[in-house]
């Protein structure tokens, strides 16, 4: 048994986040590690076991908040008189819609109307997910199971629109400069969703891990100053990443279908 120095140090740091950092697997969770995905409940249907983790709960909260926001704004838009000045909520909604419209228009040009809905939804969802760390939730985008589907949706959009616009050229472009570059071009196609999802996941996860370490290891000293780090990791980095994933999605699609 390895109960030497290693075991002693494990015992010493059992209550800190360091123990979970070294010992965490899916079944031996302590309540102290706030930055890993935690198992809340599990139940069995037939032979398969379903796990409800913090990701599901935070995702549900984010989605419900977005839905309530959308419903309230929709109601306001329908009931407000055109002659009256708009209220605070309508102004916020107008700012968001205008910003997303301008962003999509600037990149996609004439195709903007087809994609502005998806890009707007993606932007608001990812933004709210990223800054949910401010409200004590674990950001759902720090789970690879959330970011990979976003990358796969983008991949499907790219391939579908490329096939629709370029017809056969979409496939012959893979052999473009010389025929033996085909494997590299194919890998390049499939690297798009991987790099998109890994970028978002890595950025949010690194912020979550650092904040968890600061709150866990420096617990007596982490009184007010981690708020500065929250501004950087949650607000700044979260906004940048939401912007970047939308921009890259638009750039990749425009690359295939032209302006």
């Amino acid at each position: 048994m390895g109960n030497g120095i290693v075991g002693a140090s494990f015992h010493f740091m059992n209550t800190s986040a360091f123990a979970t950092l070294l010992e965490t697997t899916s079944d031996e969770q302590e309540s102290s590690g706030s930055f890993m995905i935690q198992l809340l409940k599990e139940f069995k249907i037939g032979n398969t076991t379903l796990h409800i983790t913090t990701t599901h709960v935070c995702l549900a909260i984010v989605t419900i908040v977005l839905m309530i926001f959308a419903l309230v704004v929709n109601h306001k838009v329908k009931t407000t008189n055109e002659d009256e000045p708009p209220g605070v909520l309508l102004n916020i909604a107008e700012i968001i819609v205008e910003a997303v419209d301008n962003m999509v228009q600037g990149i996609m040009g004439t195709n903007a109307n087809k994609f502005v809905n998806y890009i707007g939804t993606l932007f608001m969802f990812v933004l709210l997910c990223n800054i949910s760390g401010l409200f004590g939730l674990r950001p759902p985008t720090a789970d690879y199971g959330i970011t990979l589907p976003l990358g796969v949706i983008t991949f499907c959009l790219i391939q579908y629109n490329g096939m629709k616009v370029n017809k056969v050229n979409h496939f012959t472009d893979l052999f473009k400069p010389i025929w033996f570059l085909f494997p590299i071009n194919l890998i390049g196609e499939f690297a798009v969703p991987l790099s998109l999802s890994l970028r978002l996941f890595g950025n949010v996860m690194s912020g979550t891990v650092l904040m968890g370490l600061i709150y866990g290891l420096l617990r007596p000293f982490s009184v007010a100053w981690p708020s500065v780090l929250h501004i950087y990791f949650d607000i700044f980095s979260g906004c940048i990443q939401a912007y970047v994933i939308c921009m890259l999605t638009m750039v990749y699609i425009t690359d295939k279908i032209g302006d």
Partner: peptide
């Protein structure tokens, strides 16, 4: 920002 985000990818592979 776009270029920096793409340049960041290799570092994030290491992080992963």
């Amino acid at each position: 920002l776009l270029g920096q985000a793409v340049a960041e990818t290799t570092g994030l592979y290491g992080f992963a």
